[in-house]
């Protein structure tokens, strides 16, 4: 009876995943040193890339792992920026305002989750868009914002231009690394397994002891917090808060594009998708409307012909698990190989 159970063990890291973590660490160190040698233009572009990575990772956690497909996550992007303006207006440092704004977004997302998580599937997706639109209108009612005219984060002017750019860059890099680490930790934990079980069959998950409501609320709040961080950081980079821009559904469209192309439900896929989106934007955004048409067409093509995205395909073909959140049962005499 116990022969098989004694002959196997559970493996979570493989040599390739260990190398990948070391490589990722080295890349982070290199990126942290970039202000010493990179141009202002490059730092500014990289800041945008880091924000895209945060957005893609958060949407992937929510939809790819949790099955909570939303087209209203711009709600938290806009709120992150809005509360940064509001708190900075009280006289606080703009970068402290960013942190406080993200926390407030996380707190506000909890009561929203209590209502919205009662909805399922398409109702949840569209319902979130409605939430984003309502919050957009409510923000417009704030006299400080001056409706769609918007307002600038003028307190950033206390910093000189180069210093400001460096702080924003490093803050965004640190936020991206921290949020990716948080997601990785959560998804690798038993909560991560429960999140995926609920995605696949909520009734079955409940029948084996999982508590879906609390688990989904946790995921919803983490995703809202992360996207709130992204919105607040985007404001520090762009300086001006225009409600129509920050609460635009285009942000959800970008998140969906990045995750579909990179690989939905794959931790590495979201990062890869953000990089691809960043490159496409860098090279082709000047083509105007055709750029947006192309983004949509590419996303549809991936959904139809490569539903698990580029990383999903690479994982299937080469058994790559660089940042594994799952488990492998391996025979004890085969530990530390990359073979299944």
């Amino acid at each position: 009876m116990s022969q098989w159970t004694n002959s196997v063990t559970i493996q979570r890291w493989t040599p390739s995943s260990r190398y990948a973590i070391v490589f990722a660490g080295l890349v982070l160190v290199l990126l942290a040193l970039a202000p010493l040698f990179a141009s202002n233009g490059l730092l500014d572009r990289l800041t945008a890339l880091f924000i895209y990575v945060i957005l893609a990772a958060m949407w992937n956690a929510l939809a790819g792992y949790g099955g909570l497909i939303s087209v209203g996550q711009q709600a938290f992007f806009g709120l992150g920026a809005y509360f940064t303006i509001r708190i900075a207006d009280l006289g606080l440092d703009p970068f402290i305002s960013v942190a406080l704004a993200a926390l407030i977004v996380g707190v506000i997302s909890y009561p929203i989750s209590l209502v919205m998580l009662r909805l399922k599937g398409g109702e949840f997706a569209i319902g979130m868009w409605v939430v984003a639109s309502i919050l957009h209108l409510m923000v417009n009612l704030d006299g400080l914002i001056q409706g769609e005219t918007g307002i600038s984060l003028v307190s950033l002017n206390h910093y000189d231009s180069a210093q400001r750019l460096t702080i924003i860059y490093l803050l965004t890099l640190g936020s991206m690394a921290g949020l990716l680490a948080l997601l990785f930790f959560v998804l690798r934990s038993k909560t991560g397994s429960a999140i995926q079980a609920i995605r696949d069959n909520e009734e079955a998950a409940t029948s084996v002891g999982v508590k879906p409501e609390k688990t989904k609320q946790l995921l919803f709040v983490i995703a809202a917090f992360g996207i709130g961080v992204a919105g607040a950081l985007w404001l520090t980079s762009a300086t001006t808060f225009l409600p129509k821009t920050y609460f635009s559904v285009q942000w959800s469209a970008y998140m969906i594009f990045m995750v579909l192309v990179g690989g939905i439900g794959k931790f590495e896929g979201a990062i890869l998708g953000a990089i691809i989106f960043f490159l496409v934007e860098t090279w082709f955004s000047s083509t105007g409307v055709w750029y947006l048409v192309s983004l949509g067409a590419i996303a549809i093509a991936f959904s139809l012909f490569l539903p698990k995205g580029i990383w999903g395909e690479l994982e299937r073909r080469f058994n790559w698990h660089f940042l594994p959140v799952g488990y492998q049962v391996v025979e004890k005499n085969k530990i530390n190989t990359d073979k299944k």
Partner: peptide, 28 residues
């Protein structure tokens, strides 16, 4: 008290081990 379902309801996106681990982690 735990049940099985007449029409199986696996967690499709997870491996067999991961399916069972969810139950082992939360059921007790």
């Amino acid at each position: 008290v735990v049940r099985t379902h007449q029409i199986p309801k696996p967690f499709d996106g997870m491996t067999v081990f991961e399916n069972v681990l969810v139950a082992a982690s939360y059921g007790v």
